[in-house]
Design a binder for these strands. Structure first.
Length: 894
RNA sequence: GGUCGCUUAGCUCAGCUGGGAGAGCAUCUGCCUUACAAGCAGGAGGUCAUUGGUUCGAUCCCAAUAGCGACCACCA
């Protein structure tokens, strides 16, 4: 065998994975092809947090994208997969604050500049880890185009966006009630709020109806401390119990203030007493009700969320303490009716787990209604499609009920809002840089808004800001925008996908991507979400270390469906590793038996690469069978990949390579491979090499490393790099259907013969004479005779025209329309007793030998459980005993 | 409360818009056979959650029920 075709004896992913990745990168395979006549295909990688670490969710997300990119690359597209990272405003800021705290420093001490220096240092130190890990995954993305949401170009894009929207009147500053994290001291979005059940109480408090002595209206609340700021009591308009009270007023205890009783249908009659105290400054619903009914907004807390000065007695108190005091006071004055236990959901900050308070504050907003409508319409009219389609509903639901987007955050790490205030007259200037003087009053004293922008404000531009926008003349923007596929989990459809759609349409007048491929989340083997707190996360890098990247990728995709969650089963990794090992061994077999390199090359070139058609003269029936099956596989797999059915595609390739190619074709072809005739060996080498290397192409997107390593050892016809080779020709006509059907029948026949032999206690490998009744498939059977006879399923094949030619005592096998007979004496050998005994003796000797051989095989002894090994030892002893008996009997007969 | 999904072999899951019930793992039976014991050949194991409907025919379409899960909203 030629040295260059030699494969390592054992399959070990560590031998080649890193090496291959470096090779691909240095050869520039990750960059888009220079050939601009090719159709573009572009995927923007969802940017992970710059300081993040790779988890299974990324592994899945990245694998899917890499499969698509590698597939399209081989199909001849000009592919770009652009990677990047996100500055992750609040998350990173939190981490830096924690680090400073550990060092005894605080954000305020350092000041804005100092803090940002720290943050950049942190980013430099911990950033980029995830991208190293993505390399381990085999991601074929163009690292030279790597972007960061805070880099210069992205910041320009963000400025452009802000200013354009502002000038169009779509960005405004306004007072709104927002979620306020009392610990991070910033507004946060609804998406960053999580709810936690906490035991608490429902306090029933009665407010006296104005002008009566003993009539009360009873409200139920979980937050008695906010009652100081009540400006109304509300009931449901249809509530018969309180109908008469609507329009009257009542007296707010402690404050002794007269407040109205109003009707509003947000009140639920069944809850509590059916009466709600309205505190517009400290509750979302009350805030809305306050606006509807023109109520006064009274803040109970100060800016540090301690009690304000409404009642001097409570001023400066912590809220918890104030609650207790106020409840005591209510009890004292007889306003507290009762207290019931009650469990309710408390809003918590996703990052710091501290309590969220609703707070009215001045923030920047994007007016979303019109933007949202356009984004929804573009999906409704099919410009962008979701896969699976059901996620479109989630998208529509969000956009159809859109709220204005609060984009300002009271953080330092992020894009600073480009608004400048005149300190003298208060005029707002929105511009890329600070104006020299106020356009209104001419003052030179201007100050920039201290706030930064929501992290999603920059992510929303990701599909085009990464390509050079706002410069619409940039090469990449012209070449690759709009992009084709966006791959992501369903959890960020609302705040990422929908915003990329709205901003993309607004700024580029096009949808930013054609397809949104939505996948589920990776759960642990018990179906639980992987989480840090549970400690049940599986580190993809550990898996790679143990099984190799290809196995991880296979296990994440095999047998899965887009949009459904995946349960991570370690067994699947074994399956994947076994598969990789299987094809490794098949490759070893093929390469070690290859006929002369040049001759095969010549042969192949003529048949496949030049003419792109088969030369039936050179093919035997089993070749036609495998070629036909392969052509069908190429068609199906291509279709599956085009439809994003990755799980189905990879399983089909698996089934073909293992169960058809290895288990049957290689076996059928062995007699010819060992043949003395060179022409025969060249022909077989050709088909083996062709079908196998082409199968590797299909598998390559899924298992890039092992396929590339093997492919480089086969006889190659174009490039020797699988990654940039051409996808196999997709045919839509299958010329060997008839031969395929015949071989399928023969396969069934072989299985039947084995079964019958087993049933009749004849060794499965014993050869028998086969009589086949046929008048039309004679030629095909003749072609199959070689593998049928040489592989031990027949020692002679006799084609008979009529069943009457078959002996009476023959055993019949019927496979579809094929009738086969085996003469009885071919199956059961009724030889003389001595011969039988001698046979038995030989067999026992063999058994003893086999047993000894087996027990000395490290592969068996190491893998089998101890019990199994002992069982084999016992068997061996048994055989030895039996052999002794037989020998004695033989001796006595003689 | 609104929306969506899931229920198929012991386990984990496929089943691509109505006709064959499948894969991997586990299990059982035979196997050292010169690519592979990380393997080969064979077997067992399912009323496709339940009940109705549409149809010549339903795992698949429709309706209802039950269990599980997710998302959104709300939780005074």
């Amino acid at each position: 065998m030629n040295e260059k075709h030699k494969l390592a004896d054992k399959f070990n992913p560590k031998d080649f994975e890193d090496k291959l990745y470096e090779e691909w990168e240095s050869k520039g395979f990750f960059k888009p092809s220079d050939d601009k006549t090719k159709e573009p295909y572009c995927i923007m990688m969802p940017p992970p947090n710059v300081t993040g670490k790779l988890h299974m969710g990324h592994a899945l997300d990245d694998t899917i994208q890499d499969v698509l990119i590698r597939y399209k690359r081989m199909r001849g597209y000009r592919t770009l997969w652009l990677p990047g990272t996100d500055h992750a405003a609040i998350s990173t800021e939190m981490k830096v604050v924690q680090k400073l705290k550990a060092e005894g420093k605080s954000k305020e001490e350092l000041g804005r500049e100092g803090f940002l220096d720290e943050a950049w240092a942190w980013t430099k130190e911990y950033g980029g880890i995830i991208q190293k890990q993505q390399r381990k995954l085999g991601c074929s993305c163009d690292w030279e185009r790597n972007r960061f949401t805070l880099d210069e170009g992205m910041s320009d894009a963000v400025l452009e966006q802000f200013i354009k929207l502002y000038n169009k009147g779509l960005i405004y500053k306004g007072k709104r009630m927002v979620n306020w994290c009392t610990s991070c001291n910033t507004s946060i979005s609804d998406a960053e709020v999580e709810y936690k059940e906490e035991p608490s109480h429902l306090w029933h408090i009665r407010y006296k109806i104005t002008g009566t002595e003993d009539q009360y209206i009873e409200v139920a609340t979980t937050r008695p401390e906010t009652m100081l700021g009540d400006t109304a009591v509300a009931v449901h308009p249809d509530d018969e119990r309180y109908k008469d009270l609507v329009g009257k007023t009542c007296i707010l205890p402690i404050m002794n203030k007269e407040i109205p009783i109003i009707a509003d249908d947000f009140v639920e009659m069944e809850f509590g007493t059916g009466c709600v105290k309205i505190t517009p400054a400290h509750d979302m619903n009350d805030y809305q009700a306050g606006l509807r009914h023109n109520l006064e907004f009274i803040e109970v807390f100060d800016k540090d969320f301690k009690m304000g000065d409404l009642v001097p007695e409570y001023k400066g108190m912590e809220l918890k303490e104030a609650r207790q005091k106020i409840v005591e006071k209510l009890e004292e004055i007889g306003a507290l009716v009762n207290t019931e236990d009650y469990t309710h959901n408390v809003a918590k900050c996703e990052r710091c787990k501290n309590t969220i308070e609703p707070k009215v504050s001045e923030q920047w907003f994007v007016s979303m209604k019109d933007l949202a409508k356009r984004a929804a319409d573009s999906v409704r009219n099919g410009e962008t499609k979701f896969v699976p389609q059901r996620y479109e509903k989630q998208y529509f639901h969000w956009l159809d009920n859109i709220q204005d987007w609060c984009i300002s955050r009271q953080l330092w790490w992020g894009h600073r809002i480009p608004a400048y205030y005149c300190e003298k007259c208060g005029e707002i200037h929105v511009a890329k840089e600070m104006p020299e003087k106020c356009t209104k009053c001419g003052s030179t004293k201007l100050v920039q808004d201290p706030d930064t922008l929501d992290t999603w404000f920059s992510s929303a531009l990701w599909p085009f800001s990464t390509l050079g926008w706002p410069n619409e003349e940039s090469e990449d923007y012209k070449d690759f925008y709009p992009t084709q596929t966006l791959v992501t989990g369903f959890d960020i459809i609302t705040f990422w996908i929908s915003r990329m759609m709205t901003q993309g349409l607004e700024f580029t007048n096009q949808v930013p991507f054609k397809d949104v491929l939505v996948h589920g989340i990776v759960r642990d083997n018990q179906g639980r979400k992987m989480s840090k707190t549970l400690g049940n996360g599986i580190d993809p890098l550990d898996v790679i270390d143990q099984y190799g990247t290809d196995s991880l990728r296979f296990s994440l995709l095999s047998g899965t469906t887009m949009g459904n969650d995946i349960r991570f089963m370690p067994e699947k990794l074994d399956q994947a590793a076994n598969f990789a090992n299987k094809i490794w061994n098949a490759a070893k077999f093929i390469t070690m038996n290859l006929a002369d390199d040049e001759k095969v090359r010549e042969f192949c070139y003529e048949v496949y690469e030049k003419e792109h058609k088969y030369n039936p003269e050179r093919l035997r029936i089993e070749d036609k069978w495998i070629l036909n099956k392969f052509d069908k596989l190429v068609q199906e797999v291509s279709k599956n990949l085009d439809n994003y059915d990755l799980g189905i595609a990879v399983d089909k390739i698996y089934g073909f390579m293992w169960n058809e190619f290895c288990d049957w074709y290689i076996e059928m072809v062995k007699p010819r491979i060992y043949s003395e005739d060179e022409a025969t060996r060249v022909a077989v080498s050709d088909i083996l090499n062709h079908v196998f290397s082409s199968s590797l192409k299909l598998l390559h997107p899924f298992m890039p490393f092992v396929t590339s390593e093997i492919y480089s050892k086969l006889i190659c016809f174009g490039t020797e790099d699988l990654m940039v080779s051409n996808w196999p020709t997709i045919r839509d006509e299958f010329v060997f259907d008839k031969e395929e059907a015949t071989v399928e029948k023969l396969k069934k026949l072989i299985v039947e013969i084995r079964n019958i032999r087993t049933k009749m206690n004849v060794h499965p490998a014993k050869k028998s004479k086969l009589m086949i009744v046929s008048n039309d498939i004679e030629k095909e059977i003749k072609e199959a005779e070689e593998f049928l006879t040489k592989l031990g399923f027949a020692n002679e094949i006799i084609i008979v025209k009529d069943e009457s030619e078959v002996p009476q005592n023959a055993v019949s096998i019927v496979v579809d329309d094929l009738k086969v007979f085996i003469p009885f004496e071919e199956l059961v050998d009724i030889e003389e007793e001595i011969k039988r005994l001698e046979g038995e003796k030989t067999k026992l000797e063999a058994e003893v030998l086999r047993g000894e051989k087996m027990l000395s095989n490290p592969g068996f002894v190491n893998k089998a459980p101890e019990a199994k090994v002992n069982e084999e030892k016992a068997k061996l002893e048994n055989y030895k005993q039996m052999l002794k008996t037989v020998e004695e009997r033989l001796a006595s007969l003689k």
